[in-house]
Amino acid sequence: MTTSGEPVPQTPKTEGLRLRARLRYLYHGTQPTAVKFRLMVIVIDLAIIAFFIAAPILKEAGWVFYAVDYLVALILGLDLAARAYAYHSIKDWLKRPIVWVDLFVLATLLFPAWLANFGFLRLLRFWSLLNSELFWRTVGHRFDDTRVEEVTRAAAALVTFIFVTTGFVYAYFGRTEGIYGYLDALYFTVTTLTTTGFGDITLPGNWGRVISIVIMLVGITLFLRLAQTLIRPNKVRFPCPTCGLQKHDPDAVHCKACGELLNIPDEGH
């Protein structure tokens, strides 16, 4: 309102500022409405990831598949645009590697015919979701220690690797050496990753051997990382006021790095 009581005219600039403030509230706020909105975004993301997993099979549906594909592209594009606008600086937002993963996933949705052979990389969306600030600010704040976060991130990396590799094998080696469907590609990936190697399905040629070696080495590394996070002693996130060390033992009295006296709250306080 102006001093004369007349309403302030709404210009495109003021409307844009109001929209940015609203998006920042929804994507970064702590109020129940903002948390519910982000939970809805996460649920939609998980539904999109389920579509990505089933995509190799759903492609047989023809135009229906492409209609759903472009609908998913629209939803993902609007979400990324909203996150970018809500961020304090779009330039800083674009500097984050996780953003480029999402942009590439969006490109495979917008150009399915040209980027069909890279469709398996859409499953990287699962990794980017479980490593995003939005996910941990919405769901992860419920946990006081870091074990759940570390286990979740390690499991997300392993699951993402399995499905991305399965998609790659299905896209480039389908209908060869016993790989006649997506389930065959998944079976080969899991047996190779676990070094079981029954030998009933193998990839042809030298490149097939190289890919099998990479699957075994990377897969075992990710599996060991997951095992380590499960076995490693529990830590809590409590920044040291002197040296800034983030993680400490739950019953720590002094910081291991600098000896500063700590006051870590327990569950009863």
Score class of each variant (00 low, 15 high):
residue 98 I to A: 10
residue 88 H to V: 13
residue 141 H to Y: 15
residue 140 G to D: 04
residue 149 E to H: 12
residue 146 T to Q: 07
residue 129 L to Y: 03
residue 103 L to W: 09
residue 120 F to G: 00
residue 152 T to E: 04
residue 110 L to A: 11
residue 140 G to E: 01
residue 113 A to N: 14
residue 96 R to N: 14
residue 146 T to V: 13
residue 125 R to S: 13
residue 81 A to K: 08
residue 130 L to A: 06
residue 152 T to H: 04
residue 100 W to I: 05
residue 123 L to A: 08
residue 135 F to D: 02
residue 147 R to N: 06
residue 118 F to D: 00
residue 99 V to F: 05
residue 93 W to S: 05
residue 96 R to F: 11
residue 95 K to H: 14
residue 147 R to I: 02
residue 110 L to C: 12
residue 132 S to G: 12
residue 81 A to P: 03
residue 138 T to D: 08
residue 107 A to D: 08
residue 92 D to N: 14
residue 95 K to T: 13
residue 113 A to E: 15
residue 107 A to R: 01
residue 159 V to Y: 01
residue 115 L to D: 04
residue 118 F to I: 04
residue 119 G to Q: 03
residue 148 V to I: 14
residue 143 F to V: 05
residue 100 W to G: 08
residue 132 S to K: 06
residue 138 T to V: 10
residue 122 R to D: 05
residue 147 R to L: 05
residue 105 V to P: 00
residue 82 A to R: 06
residue 84 A to L: 12
residue 124 L to Y: 06
residue 111 F to M: 13
residue 139 V to Y: 03
residue 130 L to I: 09
residue 125 R to A: 12
residue 150 E to R: 08
residue 142 R to N: 11
residue 99 V to P: 01
residue 144 D to C: 10
residue 155 A to L: 14
residue 105 V to R: 00
residue 102 D to V: 03
residue 100 W to F: 09
residue 149 E to K: 13
residue 108 T to K: 00
residue 140 G to Y: 01
residue 102 D to N: 14
residue 96 R to A: 13
residue 124 L to E: 02
residue 132 S to Y: 07
residue 148 V to R: 03
residue 110 L to K: 03
residue 138 T to P: 05
residue 132 S to C: 10
residue 137 R to T: 13
residue 82 A to H: 05
residue 91 K to A: 14
residue 156 A to N: 06
residue 105 V to W: 00
residue 85 Y to N: 07
residue 149 E to N: 12
residue 114 W to K: 15
residue 99 V to T: 12
residue 159 V to G: 01
residue 121 L to M: 14
residue 85 Y to H: 11
residue 125 R to M: 15
residue 84 A to N: 06
residue 144 D to S: 15
residue 111 F to Y: 13
residue 138 T to I: 09
residue 159 V to L: 11
